[in-house]
């Protein structure tokens, strides 16, 4: 799942294909290709096409009305706001955690590594419930929060918290193997040459991980904007106030307002396409970088 891992071993396939000793017979080849392509069409491409056809079924005008509806715009704004907070937060957390895990030895390191994966292994609904239990009206801190007039659950802070939790692993998971593979020698060299901790990080560590970091950020962002489960639990579904785009899609759909639901959904689908495009671009950059090294 790492950017670097994804590009290793390409080109090998072509060598096997060109060599009659390792080439598969035609029918095996066609069988595998057909199965893969059918699956691809049915489960990946068709839904994507369906989203856009459904969104535009009643014409451009309906489409535009649906996405310029005040509630829809509010949901777009909220989604962007949540992403704008949680992605930088996870960028900092992720880099710090990866740095600590990859470059230092300390007690409880294995435990921390496992902990980072927790948001991936827990159902998002549970993740949302955790925050309700902590900050909800009857939660651990509920009374105190109420007295001080701070609203977390059914408000924007809760949505941000849930999103940060769910998207936490992306950056860290992307960076840990990369930083472990690069080792500590370059940083040691920098320190021996007189660089301060900050200079070492800024001039040596960061340039070495920049593509991996960007890759992690893009995946993190995609999830932050698309998260449904955890956000749904803490949001309270207040139209125009605590509805993110995925939640807004659900509401519209439940109201049988299919065209509008698909219109907003198409925006999310567009985001997915942009993410894929960026992801491919980064893989291409990394691959080129690797080829230069060889």
């Amino acid at each position: 799942m790492t950017a670097v891992g994804a590009v290793y071993g390409r080109g090998d396939a072509r060598r096997y294909e060109a060599n009659p000793a390792t080439r598969e017979t035609d029918w095996v080849k066609w069988l595998i290709l057909t199965a893969a392509l059918t699956f691809f069409l049915l489960f990946l491409l068709m839904p994507l096409i369906a989203v856009f056809t459904e969104a535009l079924r009643k014409g451009w005008l309906t489409y535009l009305t649906a996405i310029t509806d005040p509630d829809a715009l509010a949901s777009v704004r909220l989604t962007l706001l949540v992403a704008a907070i949680s992605v930088p937060v996870n960028l900092v957390f992720g880099v710090a955690a990866a740095w600590a895990i990859a470059k230092f030895e300390f007690r409880g390191k294995r435990f921390l590594t496992t902990l980072i994966d927790l948001p991936f292994s827990v159902s998002p609904v549970i993740a949302g419930l955790i925050f309700v239990l902590l900050f909800g009206a009857h939660g651990w801190f509920g009374a105190w929060l109420f007295e001080n007039d701070i609203k977390i659950i059914f408000a924007v802070p809760g949505i941000v918290l849930a999103t940060v939790f769910v998207t936490f692993p992306f950056v860290a998971r992307e960076l840990i193997p990369l930083m472990e593979a690069q080792g500590r020698e370059e940083e040691e060299a920098a320190v021996v040459l007189g660089a301060s901790g900050f200079q070492t990080f800024w001039r040596v560590t960061l340039p070495n991980i920049k593509w991996g970091l960007l890759y992690g950020v893009i995946l993190c962002n995609a999830r932050a904007m698309g998260e449904f489960g955890a956000v749904s639990v803490v949001s309270g579904h207040i139209r125009g106030q605590t509805n993110t785009m995925p939640l807004h899609v659900e509401i519209l759909y439940n109201e049988y307002n299919f065209a509008a639901a698909f219109a907003v959904a198409s925006l999310l689908a567009l985001l997915a396409l942009v993410t894929l495009g960026l992801k491919t671009f980064i893989e291409w950059k990394v691959e080129r970088g690797l080829r230069d090294t060889v």
């Binding site: 020698e185 920098a190 007189g194």
Partner: peptide, 24 residues
């Protein structure tokens, strides 16, 4: 210190590698 595997800064040119200690 000269490291066994050189530990050159891979994203810098030879010139920038050598200049590093002077620039920091």
């Amino acid at each position: 210190f000269v490291f066994q595997h050189y530990a050159l800064f891979r994203h810098m040119t030879v010139l920038e590698n050598v200049a590093f200690g002077l620039r920091v």
